[in-house]
Each structure stands twice: as structure tokens, then as C-alpha cells.
Design a protein around this nucleic acid. Structure first.
Lengths: 345, 345
DNA sequence: ACAATTTACGACAACGTTTGCACTACATTA
DNA sequence: TAATGTAGTGCAAACGTTGTCGTAAATTGT
């Protein structure tokens, strides 16, 4: 029922090839025919069939976002929404469609990626986060598929990636607290298999060390990027005999959990515990008190990732050599949760 | 380079058709050949080419989500993340991929939809929200494309839609405040071209009326689903000579704005102004005080929409007649922001 | 034991594009 | 004038599937 290139051709009294060439602005088509055909296309309401196009061109003009394993949980983090927004916006501007994919477990995830890339449903992929060891990266890398990683991998050196300098960011966050006079500073980390967790932990360590501050093992707890982890970490910290006066949390959601707990126990923020965390999701400024956060430019991260990916799809062998890794700048946003000068005892 | 059905066929010593039939578990294939072919497929790492498949089957096993016009803003609302999560989860379970699409303006939006549906890149669409008059709905309806609306349309009666009973929800919210002893109740609405705004306003009206309470025009203000609107509404209300003691806000984000303003002015919630709003986004329980909200089951809304759409794609003429409209139940979550019995003066 | 049916498979034509090649008019050049 | 070039178009073969139809061989019924 739908009108095809042949229908247009017939009505215009030309061959299908000509219509196709009109469509792609082939130089060797006379202005006259071009105009005529275009009018007929308009009249008949012709829309190119993407499937047929893709079949022959071996390209789909779409990319996919691979969400990490426990997508359900992670989805609840506004972080991903921002990222997706950046990706979709840029991709849309470049004429690409965006497909969202996730699997219940790593095996399913790999299957999905394989189906999408090998099955030529998409031209490339954007990976969010990265574990130390990632089967999906392995697959994409050995398959030679275009992809970019949001985050970084320490196994593969030459893959395209867009990331923050998380070590430096954590250094800055910690240093800010130190500047405010804090000496006993705790750290709530994310899953240790995530590189971002380890990078931020390292930045915290560096800042503590270079300021000659003591680092107690019990001041570092590992959790998830979720509220609950913050809640638990909070109750752990507050029961410590020599508890921290400030803490750095790996994600704003964690801070919210901490905040909730402290409020329940009638503690004051930042007087009883100062907080700085990461990502600066829109809600950070809405909590009470608003929490200080490292703005890592999430939207920008997504936008750039999409740009880099599409660029690499269009120009696969443009391996500049220099620029495989794109670093998005971060910025410390100081809010009430850390605006209290601890008195040095 | 990639291995096709023909390569497998050649290696297995059978015809391409046979391989295809093995793939689709055709009954008339001997167990022996089936096994042999399957082994070879595995060996050669065969993955079906979705484009070719789609071309002949005229079906893509994917759906798209059409985000409303000002996607940028709306994206910042956790609401959409929840919705997308529900959609992606269900679609993924049904073996469908999800494509996200949005346009900068209504024209672009329509172009995108047309390209996706007419170009056969997706099998159906999920529309979020609905304006009173919607060109996209018009297009989908007249084109006979499968789609479901999250929200409702008052122009088209017989389209598939998944929605809450927003009138009833607003009635419940308002009634809750009345039960708490409030008599002067304000309402912060959303854009009046959104049906959801009007439905909720109507519910508010009904509740006020059936309780014989006065409704002043200045107690109803129109804004966006954004914090700022709440902030502005708040300062408007609080400067009224005969100001409301409670208010119903059309979205939690609006409440946050109200809250922020009240806090700045040292007003107490709920003592000076009680608040109830809609959507119950995860943050509602994190603000201080936590705000009472109507949980509309956002995830469920998305999940159901996907289910209904895919069902209608697979079975286009299963027009039950009864069940075009799916209503997701709502639930009033009472939190601190409304837990104060106003003394009847 | 012979027709009738069933089983298991192959040939081939779609699906709607793109694209290399060939062909026809002319126009240009030597 | 003949050779060469070029602009504009058509033909036909791909791209990787699916599905209809046909047909041997195997099975069944009588």
C-alpha cells in the first residue's frame, strides 16, 4: 500500500534509479527531472523505506545506548536521564536515531549487543560506565564495531572514551572539605568493580595524603549508587567512636540517603556532618540543605559521546592517535551541605 | 565479511531456505538437518540481519517513544525516566527494542514520527502526554499506525490509551486536605493545553464544590511542571489578603518550588501552608518536610503502555471494543507536608 | 503392489533500495 | 571528419531474508 520509489518512478515517467538519484542529490540529474520527481514524491507522500536503504547501504543511521546490568536500579538515578538527554539531542541533530538497550544480566546484555551490532540494527554503541573487566567491550573491540565508552577502561588503551578526570574531581571535593577545616573525612564509595568508584577513591586518598591527614580504614565504606547505601553508611559512621565530621559520597543519591538518615536522627547538616558528593543532579540543589556536589557535566558527557561515536562511524579510520580520550571538565558547586567551618580542635 | 544465511547453507550443504526454516522452527524440517544447521550456525557465529528480515517481513520488532515538544525541560523531570524505565523493561521482555525520539518543535516532531513509522523503522509508537489538539495523533490515527497514548485525548475516542483517573486523583488529594480541616485551598495547575492539567483542575473543583467550599479565582494559578512555577505561585498566594491554608500542586516539582520559597520566607510547612501534589517521584519523600503526593504508578503506566502497544501490533484487529482505555490506579501517599489539622475558625 | 498422501527439501521470486555499467545524444577537440 | 568527452538516464545485479510452489523420496492405505 505504501508508495515506493517505483511508484514515483512510474508516475514521473522515469526509472527507479533516477528517483533514487534525485533523492541523494546525485550531480548528474538535470534540474528539470529533479524538480519534477520531487513534486511527484511530495504529491504521493513518498517516504523512503529505511530497511531497504539499510540493507543495501549496510548502515542504519542509528546508535544504541547500552545500559549497565542492573538497569532497573540505575534508571532511578537522574544521572542516566541527563546522559540520555545529551545523547539523544546530539544524535538527533546529526540525523541519528537512538535505541535504548539493557539486559537483565551480563549474558543477556551481551546477547542484546550482539544482536544489535552484528545484526546491523545499529551502527555503533555507547557504553555507560565500565567495569574492570567487561565482556561487552571485549566483544565490541574484537568485532571492530564503532563504540565509545562513557567512563574509562584500564584494560583497553586505545578505545574511544569520554570521561571526567574523576581522580582530580575527588581530590577537589576532598580538598574543599579540608579547606573548610575538616580533618576526619569519610568516603562512601560505589561498587569496587566500577572504575569510577576506584578513581574517586583514589582522588580522596591523594587529597588526604597530600594534606597529611589520617586515613582510617573504617572511614571508607563501599556501597551502591543508591540512597540506601548512603543511609547505611550514615548509621555506620555516626556510631563510630571517633566519627568523621565530613564525608565525600560517590554519588548524589548516596548523599540523599545520608541526609535522610541524619534528619531522622536529628543531626544537623553541615554542623554535625558536612557532605560533598558527585554528579550534581538537578535534585542536589533541592534537598534541604542543598548538597555541595561536583558537577561533572553529565549532559555534556552524553552529548560529546554521541558526537565522537557518530564521527567515528562516518570516518572509521580517522584514528587521530592523539585524541582517543575526551575529558569533560568538572566543577565544584558549593552549597549549604559543606558551608560550615569545622573548628580545628 | 559477516556470515549470512547463504554461507551457512553452503557449509551445511543445504539451501538457504532450509537454513531460514531452521531459524524459524519450521515443522517440516527433519531433526537431523536442524541439528546440523544449528551447529554450523553456532560455529560460524551467524547472526540474522535484522534489516533484511524487516524488509521482507515488514516488521521491525521495535517501537518508539515520542517525547513531547519541549523535551529538554521535561527530561529533567524524573517522571520521564520512570516512564521510560517501565517501557524499556516491558518491551525488552517482549523482545522489542525501544527507540527514543524527540523534535525541537511540533513540525520536527511530526517529521520524525513520519520518518519512523512511514519509513517502517518502527512498528508502533508510544506518545507521552497529550495536548488538546495534536498533529501527531492525527497523523498516527489517519495513517492507521499502532500507537498508544499515555494520557488521554478528548478528540479521539477510540484510540488506545493508558492513563490515570486524574479527576478522581485530584478529588482525592483535595478531599484529603478538606478532611484535615482546610477550607481555603489553592491549586497550582499546569499548562491548560495539557489534558492532565485540566483533569486535575476539574477534580479539585469537584471536591471543593461537593464540600460546599468557596472557590476563588485567584486561588487557581497556571504554571508549568517546573519548580519555578511553584516558586512564583507561592509568592503570589502568600501575598493574598485572604490566603489559602493549603494547596494542591499539579506536579511534585512544583511543590519543590513552593517549598523552597516558603523556607526562604521562614514559613512552616504544613503549619502555614499544607501541600499535596502529584506523581510521587522518588524525591518527594526526601524533601523536608516530605511532601504528600498522589502516586500515579508511573512505572506501571509505562509498562502497561508498552504491553498494550505490542499487543496491538501483534494483533491489529483485536479491537475488543471494551478496552481501549486502561486506567492505572492511583494512591494517596500522606506525608508530613499535609499532616496538620487546620483549626476551623 | 500401486495409488495417494506426507515429509523434507530446493528453486525462485519477492521486499525497496543503491550503484556500477552501458547507452544515447549532443558538444567539444584535434 | 573522426575521435573523444560529457551530461542524463536506464538496466540489472546486488543486499540478506522469507515464503510460495514444486518435486523427489518416504510412508501409508487398500
Amino acid at each position: 500500500m505504501t508508495v515506493t520509489i517505483k511508484d514515483v518512478a512510474k508516475k514521473a515517467g522515469v526509472s527507479p534509479s533516477t528517483v533514487s538519484r534525485v533523492l541523494s542529490n546525485h550531480p548528474r540529474i538535470s534540474l528539470e527531472t529533479s524538480r519534477k520527481v520531487k513534486i511527484i514524491m511530495e504529491e504521493m507522500g513518498y517516504t523512503p523505506n529505511m530497511m531497504a536503504k539499510s540493507l543495501v547501504s549496510k548502515t542504519t543511521n542509528s546508535i544504541c545506548i547500552i545500559l549497565p546490568k542492573p538497569a532497573e536500579e540505575l534508571f532511578s538515578n537522574l544521572f542516566f536521564m541527563e546522559l540520555i538527554r545529551g545523547i539523544v539531542t546530539q544524535a538527533s541533530r546529526s540525523g541519528y536515531d537512538v535505541l535504548i538497550s539493557s539486559g537483565a544480566n551480563e549474558k543477556e546484555e551481551l546477547e542484546a549487543v550482539s544482536r544489535l551490532l552484528k545484526g546491523r540494527r545499529v551502527d555503533g554503541a555507547i557504553l555507560l560506565y565500565s567495569r574492570k573487566d567487561d565482556a561487552v567491550i571485549e566483544f565490541l573491540e574484537t568485532g571492530g564495531y564503532p563504540f565509545v565508552l562513557i567512563g574509562r577502561s584500564d584494560r583497553y588503551e586505545n578505545i574511544l572514551s569520554v570521561d571526567n578526570d574523576n581522580v582530580m574531581a575527588a581530590y577537589d571535593a576532598t580538598n574543599h572539605l579540608i579547606t573548610m577545616g575538616h580533618e576526619r573525612i569519610g568516603f562512601v564509595s560505589g561498587p569496587s568493580e566500577l572504575i569510577v568508584s576506584r578513581d574517586r577513591l583514589e582522588g580522596y586518598r591523594k587529597a588526604m595524603e597530600s594534606n597529611g591527614l589520617e586515613m582510617r580504614p573504617e572511614w571508607i565504606v563501599e556501597g551502591e549508587f543508591l540512597q540506601d547505601s548512603g543511609y547505611r553508611a550514615m548509621s555506620f559512621f555516626m556510631n563510630l567512636p571517633n566519627r568523621p565530621t565530613a564525608l565525600v559520597a560517590v554519588d548524589d543519591m548516596v548523599s540523599f540517603g545520608v541526609l535522610r538518615g541524619l534528619t531522622e536522627l536529628k543531626y544537623k547538616v553541615p554542623e554535625d556532618l558536612a557532605i560533598v558528593s558527585f554528579n550534581n543532579i538537578p535534585l542536589s540543589q533541592l534537598s534541604s540543605p542543598p548538597i555541595s556536589s561536583i558537577d561533572i557535566g553529565i549532559y555534556h558527557l552524553g552529548y560529546t559521546a554521541s558526537q565522537v561515536l557518530i564521527q567515528s562511524i562516518k570516518n572509521p579510520n580517522n584514528h587521530d592517535g592523539y585524541t582517543n580520550r575526551f575529558v569533560i571538565p568538572h566543577r565544584l558547586i558549593i552549597r549549604e551541605s559543606s558551608m560550615y567551618s569545622a573548628s580545628k580542635k
